[in-house]
Design a protein around this nucleic acid. Structure first.
Lengths: 225, 225
DNA sequence: TTAAAACGTTAGAAATTCATAAAATGGACA
DNA sequence: TGTCCATTTTATGAATTTCTAACGTTTTAA
């Protein structure tokens, strides 16, 4: 289950349903609104979940431009405007207000999905499985670590250890806990081996090595400071 | 008071009451639903408050799986499925739909509470274990002590001792008790070593050092005044 | 008032713990 | 088999923490 939610705002139920069907098929969560006012209240309630808004221009009560302007006062969430043919003259005006894309009706579902995915890919880090811990970027898919834009070569244990620490940011982890999670649960060796790896990681990530704090008598803690 | 609310969905009133009692004791707010349809409408009304759903599988009108699927269209709120024994074969299927845990009936309340707390801990940041003792804030996860917003460096014993005293706020603790709890039970040394640490703690927490009272002839007591 | 007891404070010794480097181990692969 | 590399272990010194013992101060009770 993806944790990406798209808000679809259109006064036509059939249009909403159409968009919903295609995006849900791609695994996105969908929220709907039938007019501008509803859009604002739905967005307010779910602003942390909503990663993209598809916004029709022509709507009763409150039109798309007004909704756009309101939302932009508090959020930079990507917005795609849905326009009817012949409304192109507004585009320039819209980009200044922070519109990310236009799709003009009627559109092919393929195009819609493609544009949505393109935008989400560049704006939603969780889609890339990239996590940024204060400049230390961990790509769990590619199993790579990048510090200040420079990729760092890491061995298996180093990577796993760093990831475990970073995933538990702010939590002091005992040596036992670390061994049980990064090594096999029945690991039999010296817990000093952790120190050894910590040393190498700290060295490799340079200045950011100080994010890995030593908790004397306990273990280590990752903390961005 | 925590503003964490749990939605309990089960068709048996007694079951709901049981779960409710235990979770309310832990300080969570409870909402109830007696069938799948009610569950959906209650969730819709309170989706921003509800931080976890306990969902029975077998219910009239709309079963747990359908409710799960519906809710997953708009939300990734953690869901624990309550299954009768022998329904395990569905588990794999459920995880794909975003089930976070299974608990099979009959269950011990202890397990229920433990699982609920484990999930909430990792999904609700507002639940972070910060305890404020009159301006002395102890973060048990991060193992840090903050006094009036300023973090204080503490050694292992100092931290453990302060935490032990604070956890037993208002209770006079004998030296023996302190030694047995903060030091190893087979500690062999002088109990005056406590005084030494108390002195350092008092100094480190400055004005708030007066919270640690000396109980002559007995030991010490933490009291906010 | 005074001695005894309990606690506060201090400084330094002792013990623990960690960082580091370097050597040993062990597995993968040519 | 030998080489390479990741990993683990070991050794050493440094840093920190903990403990102790001694002395000072306060409280208690005779």
């Amino acid at each position: 289950m993806s944790d990406i939610t798209v808000l679809v705002v259109d006064d036509e139920v059939r249009m909403r349903k159409l968009i919903k069907d295609f995006l849900m098929q791609k695994g996105y969560g969908i929220l709907e609104a039938g007019d501008g006012e509803e859009a604002l209240s739905v967005f307010e309630e779910n602003c942390n979940k909503i990663k993209l808004i598809l916004l029709d221009v022509m709507m009763p009560k409150l039109d798309g431009w007004s909704v756009l302007r309101q939302i932009r006062q508090s959020s930079k969430v990507p917005i795609i405007m849905l326009t009817a043919r012949g409304e192109e003259q507004d585009e320039l005006f819209g980009f200044e207000l922070g519109v990310d894309e236009y799709i003009s009706k009627p559109f092919s579902p393929k195009i819609l999905v493609a544009r949505v995915e393109a935008i989400l890919k560049r704006t939603s880090p969780e889609l890339k499985e990239l996590k940024d811990y204060g400049g230390i970027v961990i790509d769990t898919e590619g199993r790579t670590v990048t510090v200040d834009g420079k990729q760092i070569e890491m061995s298996l244990r180093e990577y796993e250890l760093l990831k475990y620490l970073a995933d538990n940011e702010g939590i002091a982890l005992s040596r036992d806990k670390i061994l049980n999670n990064v090594w096999n649960y029945d690991y039999y060796g010296d817990s000093r081996t952790i120190d050894s790896h910590i040393k190498k990681i700290r060295h490799k990530i340079g200045k950011k090595g100080k994010y890995i704090q030593t908790i004397r008598g306990i273990g280590y803690k990752f903390e961005i400071k």
